[in-house]
Structure formats: structure tokens, C-alpha cells
Amino acid sequence: MLFRVLGPLEVVHVDGRAADIPAGAPEDLLTALLLRPNAWVSAESLAEAVWPDRTSAVPARELWPVVHDLCRLIPLFGETSARIESMGGRYRIGIGEGELDSVVFGQLVRDGRALLPTDPETAARCFRAAADLWRGTPFARLDTYHSRAEADRLTRLRWTALDLLVDALVALDHTAGSVALLQALTAEDPERERTWLRLVEVLTLAGRPVEAAAASRKAARVVGQDAR
């Protein structure tokens, strides 16, 4: 089973069928559990994520019907144990290797970083595969400290992966690919100064001074406006 959190929540069976996770409390609870896979999470923390505008004296009792519904929709973890477990007012979801896209994403970035000095071609494939997992903002349905912190961490890591992909393309002398990627990234976030600097650098090294100067002027306008 594949759980996708790098964008709107998706749950996909091994045969490619999408699991029908009802919107509202079931979707929010599953998202909150996937925020900390294989870890015990208190009922209080989960209830805060699912129902941020109310408090409960017995959050575990309120969560139980939602957990029960999810257990019917999600297959067992392995062959015998429940995918979602409960113990002493806490819950956890069992996630195996390769089942959660945010974890796969992080591993691809680590693999690419390790390979970059000696095998930039394979490293580039790792970084591209990592970037391709993204479909939108992670954990956007939740508004908790943990969800915001994890979304920020993953977003920063995505930009790191894209920066490293540029490094890999430059090492492979793929100038056209690195320029196209950097131009796309400046369009995605025009106020990110580092991307403009890399674009000017790559254009200069490629012997395209006119384009480098134009990019530098545009960067000064866009980033300068943001500074004001």
C-alpha cells in the first residue's frame, strides 16, 4: 500500500486502486497519524488535529469510531497485525519500507547527495525522482505545530534536492537542462535569491553573457522589490 502526503492525501492499494478515505475526520486523523509514522501519538494530540476548534475530556472515546472506520478501509500491516494500533490512550500507524512518499522522498535525497561526488548521473536520477513525488503542499489539511514544522522541513528539503539537481546537471555538462530547470524555479519562486544567482552563474559559465546580464537585471528588480 502506498500513502501519499506530499500533496492532497492519497492512499493507493498495491493493485493501483485508490482507497476511498472519507473527507473530514477520517482523512484528518489518517493524515495526523502519517505525520509521525510508526510512532505512538496521544489521543489528545490527534483530537487537536482532527477537531482544532474544540476540546474534549475524553478524546480517545471520540476518536475510537473514526479509528474503527479507518481500520475497515486500510488493510492489515503485514499479514496479522492491525495497520492502526491503540494502547493506553495512544495510537500509531504501521508503515513499511517504501509505503510513505515523504519517507521515500527523504531517502532519495540522501542517496543522491551521497552519489553526487562520484556518480552525478545516478544522483540526478535520484533528485528527479524525489522532486517528482511532489503534488502540492504536504499536510495542508492540518493546522498544528507538528504539521507546520514537518511541512516546512519537507519544503526546505525539496529546494535542497532541486539545488543539488542543478549541481548534478552542471557536473554532467547538461547546460540546457540546468538553465531550463533554474528558469522554472525562478518562475515558481521569483523572490528566492539563490536561484537567480545560480542561473546567472550557469549562464556565465556557458558563455551566454547577454542572457546572464538580463537575468541579473531581472533578479535585481524582483528581489529588490521584495526587500522594499
Rank of each mutant, 00 (worst) to 15 (best):
I74D: 00
A114E: 09
Q183S: 12
A123Y: 04
E121T: 04
D189H: 13
F139V: 08
P117N: 10
E193Q: 13
I74T: 03
Q183K: 15
V179I: 15
D132C: 03
G89Y: 05
T144H: 06
G96L: 07
R141T: 15
L154R: 08
D189C: 10
T137D: 09
D143R: 10
G112A: 04
H146T: 12
L164P: 00
H174P: 01
Q107A: 07
A82F: 07
R72S: 04
A130N: 04
R158L: 14
A151W: 09
L70A: 03
T155E: 12
T155M: 09
L181D: 11
G136V: 14
A124K: 07
M87H: 13
R128Q: 08
P120I: 10
W159P: 02
G98A: 10
H68Q: 13
R156T: 11
V170P: 01
L162H: 07
F127D: 00
D119S: 12
E99C: 01
P138H: 09
F105E: 05
W196Y: 06
A114D: 12
V67W: 02
P75G: 12
F127P: 00
V202F: 01
V109Q: 01
C71E: 13
L181Y: 02
T144N: 02
D69L: 15
G94R: 15
A149Q: 14
R83E: 00
H68V: 12
G112I: 11
A187Q: 15
S102C: 14
L116R: 04
V104P: 00
R158M: 07
P138K: 07
P117S: 08
L165D: 05
F139M: 05
E97V: 13
V166G: 02
Q107V: 09
L70Q: 08
T195Y: 14
Q183D: 11
R156Y: 10
A184R: 15
Y91D: 00
G96V: 12
V103G: 00
G207W: 09
E121A: 11
A171E: 13
L164W: 09
A140M: 09
R198S: 08
A82G: 02
Q183P: 00
G177T: 10
L199A: 04
L100H: 06
V202K: 06
A124H: 06
T204I: 02
E79V: 09
D167W: 06
Y145S: 08
F127T: 03
L162N: 06
L157M: 12
V67L: 07
T155S: 12
L185K: 14
E201K: 10
E201H: 12
A171W: 02
E85P: 01
E201N: 11
D173V: 13
A149T: 13
A114S: 14
T118N: 10
I93S: 00
D163G: 10
D152L: 14
L205K: 14
L100F: 01
V200R: 12
L172K: 05
D119F: 01
H174G: 03
L133W: 03
Q107R: 14
P190C: 09
F139A: 01
A151D: 12
A130H: 04
S178Q: 05
E188C: 07
A140F: 07
V67F: 02
Q107M: 04
A180F: 05
D163R: 13
E188V: 08
L154Q: 06
L165K: 06
G78P: 02
H68N: 13
A123I: 03
E193D: 15
V200Q: 11
R192V: 05
A129P: 00
L169E: 15
